[in-house]
């Protein structure tokens, strides 16, 4: 088990992602962040806080549970459904940035795109991930990445955040 990102690395990466999202979307009033529970939702809150500071206005942030849209429900034990909360400004016509902790197969993002389609029709959907570990199984890419971590398929990447785990770090574990 090795530490791939330490607490200061994570905080630097999130601030950089905040700047990059604002740079890529000049109409900053139109941006809505949606974190994918559980850790993606916490990352979204943090990114929204720093983006709000930089942009000088509140960036709407919510969370989007994608459990009901997963294509692997039958292959795993029952997953509990997590909360979804969409900001009052909605997602219609907005620049939606999906935020997750690890981008891996791309299936979570595919499910998120389906889930979004049931809520509304954003102008664009972008993806930000703290870690991109490769091994994509679908034609999906991240627009904003904290850190590209080349991994073998046998390894697992574990993101820990203070809000849940009491510590900020990204670990690579050998299975």
């Amino acid at each position: 088990m090795s530490v791939a990102l330490s607490a200061p690395d994570i905080s630097r990466a999130l601030i950089r992602i905040s700047h990059e999202i604002l740079e890529a979307n000049p109409a900053t009033q139109q941006i809505t962040l949606l974190g994918i529970p559980t850790r993606g939702a916490h990352l979204a809150m943090r990114i929204a806080a720093s983006m709000s500071q930089i942009a000088g206005h509140e960036i709407p942030v919510g969370m989007l549970d994608i459990t009901m849209h997963r294509d692997d429900l039958r292959m795993r034990p029952l997953r509990p459904i997590m909360p979804t909360s969409i900001p009052s400004s909605g997602i219609d016509g907005r620049e939606v940035v999906l935020i997750d902790d690890v981008l891996f197969s791309g299936r979570t993002i595919r499910a998120a795109l389906d889930a979004l389609g049931e809520i509304g029709r954003p102008h664009t959907v972008q993806v930000a991930a703290l870690v991109d570990r490769g091994h994509r199984e679908l034609p999906i890419r991240a627009d904003f990445v904290g850190k590209n971590l080349p991994t073998s398929i046998a390894q697992s990447v574990k993101v820990q955040l203070t809000e849940i785990d009491g510590v900020d770090e990204v670990l690579i574990e050998e299975n």
């Binding site: 549970d65 009901m68 849209h69 429900l73 459904i81 997590m82 909360p83 979804t84 389906d114 389609g117 049931e118 809520i119 509304g120």
Partner: peptide, 16 residues
């Protein structure tokens, strides 16, 4: 509680 939102949403259907 979470599924009740579906009944309130525009599209009352999930693919699950």
């Amino acid at each position: 509680v979470e599924l009740a939102r579906v009944s309130d949403g525009a599209v009352k259907k999930l693919p699950t």
